[in-house]
């Protein structure tokens, strides 16, 4: 898999593609992400069957997501960048294709408040939170986050049962 093959497969859904030392890197829009992932997962020339990683960062102006996917059969790495606005950080969920990415999506919500449309817990912030307590307010990895001390040092999740 290289940038050429990807340009051929994806056509105008691609913003840019380049070969980097450790991976092939592409940039797509949030609207195209799901169709691109579905295509690359099933296409015999890419066969991205391995769930790698999702992470995101806040630049202060926008949020940039970084996906990493692998092909066990071909033995290649693909990284995808998706940029979304800070005040409307919504991307489609890809956990139906790679169930292993479920928790990474939850982590991205937890830390940066990105909404993963189509994730089974997307409408339930308490279940979507993964590392922080269920009743935590705010998203700590955003650059404008100011930690607030609740006054209770044992501040933790509400008892559910």
């Amino acid at each position: 898999m290289n940038a050429e093959i990807l340009t051929e497969i994806l056509g105008d859904r691609l913003i840019s593609a380049e070969d980097q030392p450790f991976s092939t890197h592409i940039v797509v829009t949030a609207d195209n992400l799901l169709s691109v992932c579905t295509e690359l997962h099933s296409n015999p020339r890419t066969q991205l069957d391995y769930a790698g990683d999702i992470t995101a960062r806040d630049t202060g102006k926008e949020i940039i997501l970084w996906y990493r996917l692998e092909s066990m059969t071909i033995g290649t790495t693909l990284t995808i960048n998706v940029t979304v606005p800070r005040d409307e950080a919504v991307v489609p969920s890809v956990q139906a294709i790679w169930p292993g990415l479920n928790w990474f999506e939850r982590e991205c919500y937890d830390m940066l408040g990105i909404r993963f449309e189509g994730h089974p817990d997307v409408d339930n912030p308490e279940l979507m939170r993964i590392l922080l307590p269920e009743d935590w307010e705010g998203f700590p990895f955003r650059k404008d986050y100011v930690p607030v001390f609740s006054g209770n040092p044992l501040h933790g999740p509400q008892e559910t049962n």
Partner: peptide, 24 residues
């Protein structure tokens, strides 16, 4: 194992020949 992103002994116990020391 692949769809869940398993690696290391968990992947190799499932017949996935995946070791970063060899693949990359």
């Amino acid at each position: 194992a692949a769809a869940y992103g398993a690696s290391g002994p968990v992947a190799r116990g499932s017949g996935l020949n995946y070791d970063v020391r060899k693949t990359a």
